[in-house]
Structure formats: C-alpha cells, structure tokens
Amino acid sequence: MVATVALALLGVTAVLVVHRLVRGPHALDRIVAVEILVTTVVAGAAVAVAVWDYTSAVLVLLVLALLGFIGSVTAARLAEEREDMR
C-alpha cells in the first residue's frame, strides 16, 4: 500500500520531469531535468529496497547517484563552452 502510493507519486514526478526535459528551453534546464530524473530513479529504487528487500540494488544506487552527479557536471561544463563559442 505504502509502496504503491510512494511509487505512484514518484511516477508522476518522473512525468513532470520528462515534460521539462522535452520543453527545455535552455540546455541547462535539460541538464537539471536529467539530474532530477536520476534522483527520482534512485528514490524509486530505494522505496523498492525498503519494501521488498531488494538489498542487492543498494550498491547500484550508490554508483548511479555518483555517476549522475559527474555526468551533470560534465554536461553543464560543455553547455558553458558552447555558450562561450557563440
């Protein structure tokens, strides 16, 4: 019950985030949206860990959270360079 409600809320969040990802308009908006999408996935998987004891997923979550951060920083830097060249 708790899991269903929490996952439903996170699902709605993901839809909202994808909406922003498609709309943009700035590249940075999309980078922020991707970062939040990763966080939402981590949150959803953490709910699954808590409710259904998917403990083996925890290490994957750790890696995913760190990779999401590194990826977003890299993309933001790239966006900055593209702006500079204009």
Partner: peptide, 29 residues
C-alpha cells in the same frame, strides 16, 4: 518517511515545471 519523501519529490517536480527560469527550477531541485 517514504510517503513524505515521495510528496517532496513530487513538489520538486511541480516546481521544475511551474517555475519561470533555470535558477528557480534549480532551487526546486
């Protein structure tokens, strides 16, 4: 905690859609 967390995630998503510019959206995130 799970339910409150999911609600705050959703509110962050709402902020991401409704706020007018990148930095305010970043605040929501």
């Amino acid at each position: 905690l799970l339910l409150c967390g999911a609600v705050f995630c959703l509110l962050g998503g709402v902020g991401l859609v409704r706020f007018p510019d990148t930095v305010t959206r970043l605040q929501a995130a």
